[in-house]
Amino acid sequence: MNKSYLQEDLLRMSGVNPRKCMQCGKCSATCPAYDEMEYHPHQFVSMVKNGDIEPLMKSQSLYRCLTCFACVERCPRSVEPAKLVEAVRLAVIRQQGANRMTANDIPALLDEDTPQQLLVSAFRKYTK
């Protein structure tokens, strides 16, 4: 896929305008999964802005984001980094083809240690 087309697609999917970002880093400061991530929320914003999207698509960081939306809640500029992370994730899934999750898959995944929030997010992520 063409780089600029991919960038445009990501921005359209997420509704995020990365140019609004003032690089204050509050998203990364608030991120509970920070230590698990190779690329941190503020880097997602600046890398998508610069069209540097390939490394993000290959990174495990995509799956470490808990979609807790703390970054969205705290961002003083309303940039909404989590939506961008999710858009990149979606772009990867679309490239992979139809590996979608259905409601039937959920009971098998339930166990006591798994937070329900995780299943809800997983369902959101993999049904699009």
Binding site: C24, K26, C27, A29
Partner: peptide
């Protein structure tokens, strides 16, 4: 350079979580 993400009072300390960009 970076913003503070959250402050959590814990005992007599304030746990500050912040970015060092």
């Amino acid at each position: 350079k970076g913003m503070v993400g959250k402050v959590t009072p814990q005992g007599d300390k304030l746990k500050v979580q912040a970015s060092d960009l």
